[in-house]
Amino acid sequence: MAKKFAVFTSSDSTYFPLCRLLLQSLKDHFHDEIVPQYYVVDCGLTDDQKNSLQNNFEVNLVEPKHDYGVPEKFFFSKAMTVRAHLPEYAPSADHFIWMDADAYVLNGSLLNVIDQALDEFEVVAVTEAGRSYSSFQRKDEYVPAFNSRPTEVTQSISDYNGQVNRHFFEEDTARYMSGFQNINSGMFGARRDCELWALWKDAVRGALARLESQFWASPRLDFLFEQASFNKVLRLNSIRLGILPETFNWNVDRRLPLVDVENRRLCCPEPPYETINVLHLLGSTKRRYYQPNYFRGPPVETPIVLTYANVLRLLNREDHVPDKVEVEEIWTRF
């Protein structure tokens, strides 16, 4: 019997254009063997935006019930705490996929790969490490070339992950966790019959209790409570975890992809130039300008913001760009 899939994301009024583009990309690519049900966690959508999502994408709107008493300054917290409760909102689904609203599906293999992987594993996800990724954080607002040195380096990724682990966990646990690559919780798949859900809820409560004891003194790290809890559950328990390649959750803040115009795709910047399946514009990458670098095709002289719509234009797939989607519509909101 075919498994029933539920695909979740979240949005408020600011993220609405991103959410709409994500759903459009899902709709463009998932239309053959597997037809999932779509759910959008409403974190502050307007009535018009809700109607737009329901009319155009037939989504189920979810009112999040679990905020765990997170301070109001973390206005996006419900989009995080709700992730441990997905089975409660889609009671008929067997498999669940979470995708952040600032991610975009670029080809149709994602759902089939996760479907097959969940036959063997209880959870599938992608680490924030990859052979093509930078080992350092960078603060460039404009990145002139893909292989250029950043103008300002803050710290190594491994040092940063160690700092996050020490922030949320006792010393022994933090040391143990630092031996693993960090898993990004912005795109993952999980089965209903999995220990993840109950353990994740407990881990989130524990992380929040620790932050409360620290008076929420480090916003730069505090907002990672949900992802840190996700990693702790997966690394400290006997949950069968399948790690997908970085092409299934390409973190733009770690390395820019190559544009392959001839084959209409984005690809890894290292041989053998694997196709990128999911593009994820984390953090400030949503408002940076980039100089596209081409694997095959003519160069673009003017730096652009790497939106989903602009990516499709770079790949000569303008026919897939949703109507009335322009850069200004999205990025003036951030």
Rank of each mutant, 00 (worst) to 15 (best):
E141K: 15
S178C: 05
M177G: 11
P144H: 12
F168V: 08
N147S: 13
R166Q: 14
R191T: 06
Y142I: 03
N165M: 11
Y160P: 00
P150W: 03
G179E: 13
A174Y: 11
F180C: 14
D159A: 07
R138I: 07
T154L: 07
H167D: 10
R166N: 15
W197N: 12
A207I: 12
L208E: 04
F180T: 14
E152A: 03
S178T: 15
A203H: 04
R205H: 08
T154R: 03
T173A: 13
V204C: 05
Q137P: 04
G189L: 10
F168Q: 06
T173C: 09
R131F: 07
Y133A: 13
Q163M: 14
T173G: 08
A190P: 09
Y160F: 01
V143F: 12
A198E: 15
R138A: 02
A190L: 04
K201M: 07
S178V: 06
S158M: 09
I157Q: 13
D172F: 14
D140C: 08
F136N: 01
N184R: 03
L208V: 07
S156M: 04
N184Q: 03
P144E: 11
L196H: 03
M177D: 11
R192C: 14
F169A: 14
A198Q: 14
T173F: 06
A207R: 01
F188R: 07
D159G: 08
K201F: 04
D202Y: 00
Y160I: 00
E152G: 00
S148F: 04
S156T: 03
S158R: 14
F146K: 06
L199D: 00
N161V: 10
G206F: 07
N161C: 10
F180N: 05
R192P: 08
G186I: 13
D172M: 10
A198N: 12
H167N: 05
Y176K: 08
F188D: 02
D159C: 01
A190K: 00
P144F: 02
F146C: 04
D172G: 06
P144L: 02
A198R: 10
N165K: 01
G186D: 11
V143E: 07
